[in-house]
């Protein structure tokens, strides 16, 4: 699996998100209150809302368009809604974040 560096954890505010532009589309990278990080595609399964713009709470994000709540761990919609987004492998080494697009690309293929 090949990892690509995308910047450091402190580039993202706690309980916030940043985007990474990739050939496969935008990826949203999240940092929780407890400094856990997650990466998912920045595209709500409901109507394609930019999840990176939502409010981050626990290990979940609420989509800014219609308030779907998406689990950052599984990419699945929580509560009564049904749907899921792809999760992207992410790791932290010495405060630097790496994602792996190969897997994402495979899945997309």
């Amino acid at each position: 699996m090949s990892w690509v560096s995308i910047g450091s954890m402190t580039d993202i505010p706690r309980r916030g998100a940043r985007c990474v532009e990739t050939p496969l589309g935008k990826i949203a990278v999240f940092r929780t209150a407890e400094d856990r990080v997650f990466a998912i595609e920045d595209h709500c399964p409901h109507k394609g809302g930019p999840l990176s713009q939502g409010i981050v709470h626990g290990a979940a994000v609420t989509c800014p368009l219609h308030n779907w709540v998406i689990s950052l761990e599984t990419g699945k919609a929580l509560g009564a809604d049904d749907g899921s987004v792809r999760t992207i492998p992410i790791k932290v080494e010495g405060g630097v974040l790496f994602i792996s697009l190969a897997v994402a690309a495979d899945r997309a293929a």
């Binding site: 090949s2 690509v4 560096s5 995308i6 910047g7 580039d11 993202i12 505010p13 916030g16 940043r18 985007c19 990474v20 532009e21 990739t22 050939p23 496969l24 935008k26 990278v29 697009l101 190969a102 690309a105």
Partner: peptide, 17 residues
């Protein structure tokens, strides 16, 4: 300013590695 800029931009070459 973090709000308005992507954190990183990954090109085709990086992604294909």
């Amino acid at each position: 300013k973090h709000e308005f800029k992507p954190m990183a931009t990954i090109g085709m070459a990086d992604a294909a590695e």
